[in-house]
Design a protein around this nucleic acid. Sequence first.
DNA 1: ACCTGAACACCGTTCAAGT
DNA 2: ACCTGAACACCGTTCAAGT
Lengths: 191, 191
Amino acid sequence: MSQNREPLTRDRIIETALHIIDGQGLGRLTMRRLGDALEVEAMAIYHHLPRGKEELLDGLVAHVAVLPADTAARAGAAAWRDRLREWAAAYRARLLEHAGVLPLVVTRRNPAALTGTTESLREVLRLAGFLDGAAASGAHTLIGYVIGHTALEVRGREARRAAGPEQEVDWDGRFNAGVDVVLAGLVTTLT
Amino acid sequence: MSQNREPLTRDRIIETALHIIDGQGLGRLTMRRLGDALEVEAMAIYHHLPRGKEELLDGLVAHVAVLPADTAARAGAAAWRDRLREWAAAYRARLLEHAGVLPLVVTRRNPAALTGTTESLREVLRLAGFLDGAAASGAHTLIGYVIGHTALEVRGREARRAAGPEQEVDWDGRFNAGVDVVLAGLVTTLT
DNA sequence: ACCTGAACACCGTTCAAGT
DNA sequence: ACCTGAACACCGTTCAAGT
């Protein structure tokens, strides 16, 4: 009787890998373990990802780090600050959901993955009235803050375990406060 | 005749490991290769770092990520913005010098390593007139930006290779512009 | 105390072979 | 076209043994 398992797919491989990372951590993602989870020999994966684990990790970064800001909204809208606030919150949430891949996002791995996101952010700023240079710079500043602060948050939440709840940090509030600082700073560069 | 090599030391081990990372990348740091570089069997390392590679990586993070802002300067000095600017530039330079350990700094590894740095930054803000909560939040915002933006820079510099010099980015200028945005934003929370 | 040598359980990946 | 099995070169780490 035939094994009625779904066919192996690049997408299914990457999603299963993400599931392993979320559940057990990046360090336990192994070609062999990934094969087990897919009910397949590890070597079968190479047929769909010829570059092997390298390509797998690239795919994981692309899957997690790509979240463009919607630039479809009406141009010149006065509410660009609210939209950036929402985008920042959504991006942080995405990174926290898959905190195990953060080290991969930070590594030089798959540098093209963040290009689209940065570009759409730049477009939002341009529609808000920023000059080209200021929009590019501002997008970089905001996305840099979001990634860096979220990385600190992941580390900080873990530290609580070892050091006890000495200083309870309100991470939501602290993140939002930082976003407001960056946005307030950006406003001073407008005109 | 006796081998006249220096005695094995925790510090010497970590410095040699850093040298390997800087020259060949994090992926090629191996206990066996590290042993070779130290002219010793890999197993000898465990005598100085009982927790093995885990302890080695923790030590590397501590060695690179600890750069406190000097809080010794006169309290209430008006030039706190210049001091934060200098600190940010110095911290970025340190991270770029050892870009290979950035993924380790970002991982939950050794969460205590950044505590001292964050604290001294908070002290600078407190002396500048920020209330306790605002100083803590502001320190987090600035350090988050510096780490995140520097990570983007490392990725971006690498991307140039694959995509050609399509868009030359002035990383120094962009980093400083972001620092100024953050500082300008912080000023609006002062009063 | 400090280092070595052999061994163990695990990696990623290749390659010829099956269907 | 898609997957398997055996094999290769490499990991981190243990443990008993040397000095």
